[in-house]
Amino acid sequence: MSGGTCDVIVVGGGVIGLTTAVVLAESGRRVGLWTRDPVGRTTSAVAGALFWPYRIEPARQVGPWLERSLGRYEELARDAEATGVRVVPGVMANTRLDGLGSWTSRVRGLREARPEELPEGIVQGVRAAVPLIDMPVYLRYLKARLRAAGGTVERRPVAHLGEPAAVAGAVVDCTGLGARELVPDVSVHPVRGQVVVVENPGIEEWFVGTLPGAGELTYLLPQPYGVLLGGTATEGCWDLGPDQAEADAIVALCTRVVPALAGARVLEHRVGLRPARPRVRLEAVPLPGGGRLVHNYGHGGAGVTVAWGCAEEAARLATG
């Protein structure tokens, strides 16, 4: 299927773009996905991918996106080997039940954590079992699912959104940080995140929280390939190179949470740039000639978490 025979062109090959393309293709639309980078080299590929809202607004809209996405991920977790999605228990520290939204009514086993379930120095938190996603496996799954629905994936950088608009009646802009120049939208900015992957000494549960005396959020996410340790959130930083001092600090903080991590062999350093914005932009605007452009970007650190809910809304806007 060439670009000229598409009903919709989705621009952006990260989790937001792929999910949106899948929803559109499975609804019967002829969909082409254009991506500047290989799917496995997008920002999404290095995401920690724990299902929990992080650095995303507006709260009023995020709740429904979360509820719809949670149901989708729980379905995908029934075939974890193929999808990379598992439902894993863990602790979200420094978080109160009454401060969470209605979406949590769907979360398995959500309750206040008992003191013995919290690491030293943490006095409060909640326990829950939520989706945890192995992103390299999951992105390959989404790409295959899109193709099975008749969609195409094309490595094709876009200089301006008029290019896809010239070959399809509807365009969905899922370019993340690229929207800063492509739209252009200078409110989109990077929040640099660095993580360290180490061999797993036997950790089966995740942990997220800010430790006493630490400025950054600390998290441990057990993945099939090792334990992903994080992290950092540096506003406005475009540097994709790993920083050894930051990596050492991450490992030290995570070892405070789980002492068994001491001496764990480092497998990989990863750096990604979260596409932050004061609020998600999810809206349709008319194109010259009667076409439609839908923006779906600015998801910050929660792109994976809200991907399905946002994709369904973007698909409605593109075809309604």
Rank of each mutant, 00 (worst) to 15 (best):
A307G: 13
T175V: 13
L240F: 02
V167R: 13
V126L: 07
D37N: 14
P275M: 14
I56G: 08
A21V: 09
E112I: 10
C174H: 00
Q61F: 09
E246V: 09
E26H: 14
R72D: 08
E57R: 06
H299R: 07
V11W: 03
I133H: 12
A47G: 03
R41N: 15
G125Q: 10
R29N: 04
S187T: 01
L240D: 03
E246R: 04
M135S: 15
G241R: 12
G291Y: 05
E312A: 09
T255P: 12
W34H: 00
Y138S: 15
V251G: 13
L267T: 04
G99H: 09
G3C: 14
C310G: 03
G236T: 00
V251S: 09
V285Q: 00
L273N: 10
C174L: 07
A170N: 00
V46T: 03
W103R: 08
V196S: 10
G3P: 13
E199C: 08
G298I: 00
E216H: 07
V11N: 02
Y73I: 08
G272R: 11
R274S: 14
T20K: 03
E163C: 04
A262H: 11
T95D: 01
A276N: 15
Q244T: 06
G162Q: 08
L139S: 15
E117L: 11
G202K: 14
R111P: 02
W65H: 05
W52C: 03
L182T: 09
A233R: 06
S2F: 00
D79M: 04
A168K: 01
V188A: 09
H269I: 02
S2G: 13
A249G: 11
N200S: 10
L211W: 05
V251Y: 08
T234N: 12
G176W: 04
L24C: 05
R155W: 01
R292Y: 00
G202D: 12
V62T: 10
S27V: 05
G215W: 05
H269N: 01
L97D: 10
A77V: 07
V188G: 01
G125C: 06
L211A: 04
G193K: 09
P131N: 13
E216G: 03
V153H: 04
L142K: 15
Y225N: 11
E199N: 01
I133K: 08
N94L: 01
R68C: 02
G162N: 07
D173S: 00
P222D: 02
K143Y: 12
V183N: 04
E312D: 06
R29Y: 01
V258W: 04
L161T: 07
P212C: 08
A179V: 05
V11A: 01
L261N: 11
P212K: 10
P38V: 09
L146S: 09
G320W: 00
A264E: 12
W238E: 10
R256E: 14
T5G: 07
R145K: 13
S102W: 11
A21I: 00
A77R: 01
P136D: 13
L211E: 09
